[in-house]
Computed example of a mutant assay.
Amino acid sequence: MTEAQNCRPTRVLIVDDHPAVREALAIRIGRQADMAVCGEAADTGEALQVLPACRPDVAVIDISLKSGNGIDLIRRIKDRNALVQIVVWSMHAETLYAERALRSGALGYVNKDQATDTIVEAIRKVRRGEVWLSEAMTQRMLHRSVGVRHPSSASPLEDLTDRELEVFRFIGRGVRTGEIAQRMHLSVKTVETYRDRIRTKLDIVDGAQLACIAAQWVLENERVPR
């Protein structure tokens, strides 16, 4: 970070599909002398629309958005402005999404169960170009980097690609194949291919079992209604 950058507040873009969450975070950031909210968005389209005028230093992004998803948005923001640092602030377990977020270009992952002080400190750290992860997730990734399977690596969903995981989540919410295709801008045939791959990777017998398992996962992992 240059001396000039140190002399002005960090400009923060908040991307979350819940207005109350955006408002609460904006108030918390507004209390920091070294930060200022430069823009807000509820989904991918809004975020990309405000990005040029907002000129954020850091974007705080949720995984689940009004339309689109946070992992894809991370890539698209970095494609447009590689200087924007990104931290994910999500209710989803970091064991499943943190590594995906970092591979896409983010530098941090904070679970919403943690105090808002945590996301504020994460913003400061990623602004400096440093990685923010929990100690448990850091150890997990270090184990993986040296080829050791971490004891907590139990979820078979880790083997799903980002697109497959997104389809799995839609299935769990009860979204039909045609609508999944529309939301993801894919053909129905492509979505059906993803469904088949998910069943194979998770060793699921049929579509009914897939819907049941996906619904249970959504129930346990997405506490906020979507």
Rank of each mutant, 00 (worst) to 15 (best):
D162G: 03
T138L: 14
D113T: 12
M91N: 08
L107S: 03
E121G: 04
I119E: 05
F170P: 00
V88L: 08
L157W: 09
R124Y: 01
I171E: 12
G147E: 01
M137D: 00
L102F: 03
L142Q: 13
T95Q: 08
K189P: 00
V148E: 07
V110L: 11
A181K: 07
E166G: 02
D113A: 15
E179N: 12
L165T: 00
I86N: 09
L65S: 07
E166W: 11
D113F: 13
R173W: 04
D79I: 01
P151Q: 09
I119N: 08
P156N: 13
S134A: 10
R169Q: 13
D159I: 13
R80G: 06
Y109G: 04
Q182K: 15
T177R: 10
V131A: 02
N69G: 09
L65Y: 06
L142Y: 09
Q114M: 12
I180C: 13
F168Y: 15
S104T: 10
A101S: 14
G70H: 06
T161H: 10
H143F: 10
A93R: 13
H150V: 04
I123Q: 03
V148P: 00
L160Y: 12
I119V: 15
S152Y: 11
G172V: 12
V88Q: 11
S134R: 02
W89G: 00
K112T: 07
M184Y: 06
N81L: 07
